[in-house]
Lab assay of single mutants.
Amino acid sequence: MLDDRARMEAAKKEKVEQILAEFQLQEEDLKKVMRRMQKEMDRGLRLETHEEASVKMLPTYVRSTPEGSEVGDFLSLDLGGTNFRVMLVKVGEGEEGQWSVKTKHQMYSIPEDAMTGTAEMLFDYISECISDFLDKHQMKHKKLPLGFTFSFPVRHEDIDKGILLNWTKGFKASGAEGNNVVGLLRDAIKRRGDFEMDVVAMVNDTVATMISCYYEDHQCEVGMIVGTGCNACYMEEMQNVELVEGDEGRMCVNTEWGAFGDSGELDEFLLEYDRLVDESSANPGQQLYEKLIGGKYMGELVRLVLLRLVDENLLFHGEASEQLRTRGAFETRFVSQVESDTGDRKQIYNILSTLGLRPSTTDCDIVRRACESVSTRAAHMCSAGLAGVINRMRESRSEDVMRITVGVDGSVYKLHPSFKERFHASVRRLTPSCEITFIESEEGSGRGAALVSAVACKKACMLGQ
């Protein structure tokens, strides 16, 4: 009897593995994704193909990295998701002549009506938060230079001027797309009239992360975010950046690689679950690469896999709870928690219980395998993109072996128990001629924006502006 049951459990697990095998990517698959990513990057950089390229390769006008001589107080704003952060950054000489960066910050959550109302409502709310922060720190009387981390696709015309191309991540505030974001912020500050600010720089969160990590390690020339969304930036040779005049030196390019796949480059790798996630998203047909990796989508992918296993009578005796059938019910943090389970399955059992399920031991094991399959594919897909960037940098610099540091931020990278190990191992397999160091950014977005502002202020002083 026991043997029969054991055989049935083994057969069930084997069927589960057959279904989950769809998520496995072979090294040849990853090399294919990497080569296609490089081709799209090239198209994004070139003037004649930029418009139709899915990977936009947006110039950021960040050319210099901090040298350690900029000092002063800077205000930093960070808008990239449902939370908005205001930070005071003091850049100065530390002990023994070292450079020191001290920060104080406060988080504000953005109400739904500000995210989806008008641009005026959104930026009025942001300036209200700045006003509140300055009151708390008794700094209303000071006109501070301000660095703005704005983590949406922007076409820069200068370091302090950028046109919002399109909202992502659930934002829909009308009247912002096609307009200068810094102008919208300046107008809102003017409307309030109770404080003055000098907006000197606007950067993407990947750029802010790279600059913040450069402060720790001067070989950091790539910034990457794996959180709600997924994106990367890197220092490109100016001669390859056709959208900006000049051939000397390097400029940081914001790849906006989340949109890779929007022209069909990933079609052969998309599964039924991916198509369902895409169809029910706020932007169907867009940001397809990001939807395979980002935390906004990972939990939902797992939920759809679990429903398939229920329908195949391989999980929960073929019956799903009402909660499990509800879109968004299986949160991405559950994926991390399930994979963090120590082996007694308590954590998995508790999560499934909150979803109205009474799982068996085998159910718990199957749910864990589903989570591992989805998150491992995410790590491997992400590795193909980064390997594409790094191999490109090595080739354009004609280096036999390139040493490089990548600064990384984002909740999936930082909080998932195995993502970074799987990701690092896969990147290294795909970049055999590179020695890569990964560092995690601390308060990256805010500190990085302030350091970019410090560079901009120093330049302005040198130019006598």
Rank of each mutant, 00 (worst) to 15 (best):
V406F: 00
K172H: 04
R428C: 12
D274M: 00
H137K: 11
M34G: 04
V91T: 05
A53W: 06
T60P: 00
G183F: 09
R43L: 15
G343E: 03
F123D: 01
V207I: 10
E312Y: 14
V89S: 03
A232I: 09
A379W: 06
D78Y: 09
R368M: 07
Q38M: 05
D124H: 07
K32R: 05
T228E: 05
I351W: 03
L185K: 00
D311S: 10
D267R: 03
A21E: 15
M57I: 03
Q287C: 15
A173P: 06
L309D: 00
R403Q: 08
G407S: 10
G117K: 08
H156C: 07
V335Y: 11
M402G: 07
S336P: 15
S373N: 04
E9I: 15
R333I: 13
V389P: 03
D78L: 10
E339G: 00
V302W: 04
K90N: 03
E399D: 09
I130W: 06
N179K: 11
P59T: 04
G92P: 01
F195W: 08
D363A: 01
Y349W: 01
R377I: 00
I189T: 01
K142N: 14
F152I: 08
F152N: 11
R186C: 01
Y297C: 12
S360C: 04
V277F: 10
S353Y: 02
D73T: 02
H218D: 05
E300R: 02
E421W: 14
A450I: 13
V181N: 14
Q323R: 07
D194W: 15
V406L: 04
V203Q: 00
L77Q: 01
W257D: 00
L292M: 11
M462I: 07
V389T: 03
T361S: 09
K56L: 12
G94V: 07
D78H: 09
F171T: 12
R36T: 03
K169L: 14
H156V: 13
H50R: 06
P66Q: 15
R43S: 11
D311F: 07
M139I: 04
L185N: 02
R46F: 12
K56G: 11
A10D: 14
D409R: 06
E96F: 13
S375D: 05
V55D: 01
Q26W: 12
S131L: 09
Y413Q: 07
T116M: 10
G162N: 06
L144K: 04
P59H: 00
L309V: 03
K136V: 07
V200E: 00
Y215W: 01
G227Q: 11
S263L: 08
E120P: 15
Y349Q: 04
L30E: 09
F269A: 04
I439Y: 04
V154K: 09
E399F: 12
R429D: 14
D113H: 08
E440K: 03
N254Y: 05
L315R: 00
T405Q: 00
E221F: 06
D267W: 07
S281A: 07
Y273W: 13
A370W: 00
G444D: 07
S100H: 09
M298T: 13
Q323V: 08
A460S: 10
I211D: 00
L309A: 03
E248I: 06
T228N: 13
F438C: 01
D113S: 09
K13W: 10
A378S: 12
L47I: 15
S411K: 13
D409G: 09
Q323N: 15
D217Y: 06
G446H: 15
Q18Y: 12
Y413S: 07
T82N: 10
F195E: 05
K172E: 05
L47S: 15
T49F: 05
K458D: 12
L271V: 01
Y289E: 05
T362M: 07
T149W: 12
D124A: 03
G318K: 01
V335R: 02
K169T: 14
K56F: 10
Q323H: 05
V241R: 00
H156F: 09
K420M: 11
G388M: 07
S411T: 08
G388C: 10
E96N: 07
R422I: 12
C233K: 00
K143G: 03
H137D: 08
G356P: 09
E248Q: 10
H380F: 06
D365T: 09
M37F: 05
L324N: 02
I351A: 01
P359S: 08
E177A: 09
L185C: 06
V408I: 10
R308P: 01
E128I: 11
N166I: 09
L315D: 00
L430I: 07
G385Y: 11
V401P: 15
V55Q: 01
Q337V: 12
E51C: 15
E216V: 00
G223D: 00
N166H: 12
W257Q: 05
L315E: 00
L386M: 12
S426E: 08
E331W: 15
G385N: 12
L25W: 08
M107C: 07
P66G: 14
V455C: 13
R63V: 00
E331G: 13
G318C: 07
Q38E: 01
F195D: 01
L276K: 09
L292V: 13
G223Y: 00
S64F: 12
G328P: 07
R403I: 11
V452S: 08
I351C: 04
T326A: 10
K172P: 05
P284S: 13
V338A: 01
T209H: 04
R368P: 02
V241C: 02
Q106A: 03
R63N: 00
W99A: 06
T209K: 02
D73F: 01
S69H: 14
Q26E: 15
F150S: 13
A53V: 04
N166M: 11
E248H: 02
L271M: 05
A11N: 12
R327I: 12
L146A: 14
P153H: 07
C230G: 02
T116K: 11
I110F: 14
L77E: 01
S212Y: 10
D132R: 09
T60R: 00
S280T: 13
M87W: 05
A460G: 07
L165A: 11
F84D: 00
A449M: 08
S445R: 12
V71D: 00
E221N: 12
E40N: 04
Q138K: 12
R392I: 08
T149E: 12
R447W: 11
I390M: 12
A119C: 06
F152S: 13
Y297A: 14
I225R: 03
Q106C: 09
Q239L: 01
E245S: 04
D3I: 02
N254A: 02
D341L: 05
F419L: 05
L451G: 14
E237I: 04
T149H: 14
I390N: 01
Y125G: 11
W257Y: 05
I293P: 01
L307H: 03
G249R: 01
E177W: 09
S353M: 12
A173I: 03
S398C: 07
N180H: 10
Q323L: 10
T60G: 07
G356S: 03
E319R: 09
L352N: 03
D113F: 08
